[in-house]
Write a protein that binds this DNA or RNA. Sequence first.
DNA 1: AGAGGAGCCTGAGCGC
DNA 2: TGCGCTCAGGCTCCTC
Length: 277
Amino acid sequence: MPEMPEVESIKRTLEKNINGQVIKNVIVLLPRMIKYPDSISYVKMLSGHKIKQIQRRGKYLIMQMDNEIMAVFHLRMTGRLCYVNKNKQEDKYERIIFELNNGDKLIYADTRTLGTLYCIKPGELDKIKGLYELGPEPLSAEFTLEYLQSKLKNNRGKIKSFLLNQKNIAGLGNIYVDESLFLAGIYPETKACNINKKKAGKLIEAVNKVIKDGINDGGTTFRDYVNGKGEKGTHQEKLFVYGRDKKQCKKCGTIIEKIKVGGRGTCFCPHCQKLIK
DNA sequence: AGAGGAGCCTGAGCGC
DNA sequence: TGCGCTCAGGCTCCTC
């Protein structure tokens, strides 16, 4: 389940191989994955054009083309974007194939087919609402204590739901949110508006650390995630709470518990993470 | 307006 | 062995 560190790892492993390459042809095996415009226009807009560079924003991957077109990918849970050379055998879950001029391929594969692909012209960013409305990135200059406090103040929902909302902070998903809340010592059902300045500062530190460590480890692989070369990440070995329910907390030895918060499975340490009232 | 829940999807894992 | 159920989770859409 790719979150920001996984998508960043995909970007980094792909860029060396695809920047400057020309897309010879696009084969759309599952047209419904193309959300905008339609699959026929999608193929036309990209075929014969050079990939200038690949960028990441939140959990989105963006291929900038030489004709000012942007090909945008969101991998959701099981999407994978891999560079493969001509002789590699096919993946059962291939959905979209980008044939490159050198004979290699860029493959979009997706088991559960929940990923979304778009192709937009300059000025059409608002066609992708989720991308258009993204909040600041962790580790960026915009992700400040003042910003976080101003957002928390007006939010009466739970902090876990707040952190998962991409309009507040771009790129966090279930794994990194649970880990961030553990590091900050905050119980996931704490109301966002109850988090004071000191705790908000801890939360920023925690989010930044978790994201940075995740990127350095090449992402977290629980099930499907692989980078642009098809390799797994290693950050799963360092998780404190996610996927560790009924196990001992690595800090205090208390048994990690699992509850549902806003419909999401949520792991936490009942000793290390306190409800703030 | 903001919060919460359903739905989209397929595969893995479980109990019977 | 196999059936049916639940869960996994990012995001959009809908309702309250």
